[in-house]
Nucleic acid binder design. Structure first.
Lengths: 199, 199
DNA sequence: TTGACGCCAGAACGTCCGTTCTTTATTATG
DNA sequence: CATAATAAAGAACGGACGTTCTGGCGTCAA
């Protein structure tokens, strides 16, 4: 392992402040503005901090010299269930499991779309009204997949099943009927992820 | 409706180029660099373009005068459920939709962590074994929030409730008992989002 | 044919920015 | 107590940046 700077913990605080700032403004400001963000008074020290964060892999520079965030900048720790309350999360200790939510859920960005879920026909699969479905667009699916099908010109989210050699759409709520499409069944895509926002 | 400028079509091209640039570099460069991006030679015209994109709602300025993208800038294909069967949904894959999910679920990156859910004590709230909880770390929560509490040195995900003036942790599964902590209750964080990955 | 306007280039200017260097306070180390 | 490393402040400077103003085209209507 290469040298881990002695300023690792402090840099983690600075990184946290920068991440929060970026979440608000989607840009990395000037050194002068970063003085306020970091709560320090000298531009040269800000530069030193950014240089270290750059070496640590959280920031890059464009050919013009502008600071930009890297993929690591957006990653978040995936906790083990046994993590104690302390929570240091030092900069150099990044080799744990980190995840970017989009990368986790989206394999093929160009073929993935987000569809809000309406209704409660899939509650028994844990899919509620207001959830957002992450759907990979393709027209082939396997029995057991949850698919977005087009029935009567409307999207519908159901489990794909087979009955006497024909495809059917099975809701996960006993109050809803099984859909047995006459003729062909048009599949828009396959559910690959689900996202819910609280509050 | 206000006046729609005559330069609308050209501005759309400029916007597209800027979106592509932003997807690559995650920043909006200086006017001089934008001359190259847009393929024009005068900074003043770049400023005029950005001013119009700002008026159109695609860009904002920070208090320091720096240009930043707005939510409109990241227009992504969030389909309406009533969309008919045609479905182009061919938004170019180059757009900044890469970090949209993160942005949607995470307000304060530095205080947000991902915790895998184990067990089925919250199934009736649509939270299943294997889901990933997006948790904002703080020790204050309101009654009704779903919180990550620390009980016997282990994380547990429960709904926070109050009973006879004391906080209790209520599972959303009739097979599990309500937890009535003696003494104080240590709250690790509040559930702000949920993510599930299929297959 | 003449303005009026959209589109763009170029120059001028003051200010702010990033860099580097020097200096100071604080903390470890022995 | 001495020494060094760390953490930060501050000044100085050249250049880049954003802004504004002026001017040159092309085009379309009057």
């Amino acid at each position: 392992m290469t040298d881990s700077h002695p300023s690792a913990q402090r840099d983690a605080e600075y990184l946290a402040k920068l991440q929060d700032y970026y979440a608000d403004w989607k840009s990395i400001p000037s050194y002068a503005a970063l003085c306020d963000v970091f709560g320090i008074a000298s531009k040269s020290w800000v530069k030193a901090i950014l240089d270290r964060l750059g070496e640590a892999g959280f920031l890059e520079r464009t050919p013009d010299g502008m600071w930009i965030p890297t993929r690591e900048f957006f990653a978040r720790p995936l906790a083990e269930s046994s993590v104690p309350a302390g929570m240091p999360v030092s900069v150099s200790a990044t080799q744990g499991e980190y995840y970017v939510l989009d990368e986790m859920l989206v394999d093929k960005p160009s073929q993935t779309t987000l569809i809000p879920v309406r209704g409660d026909s899939m509650v028994e699969a844990g899919i509620h009204d207001g959830d957002v479905a992450v759907v990979e667009k393709r027209n082939l699916a396997n029995v057991g997949d949850i698919v977005v099908a087009i029935v009567d010109g409307e999207f519908t989210l159901k489990t794909l099943d087979k009955e006497r050699g024909k495809f059917i759409l099975r809701p996960q709520n006993k109050a809803y009927p099984v859909i047995r499409p006459q003729g062909s069944l048009e599949i828009f895509g396959v559910l690959v992820g689900l996202v819910r926002k609280y509050r």
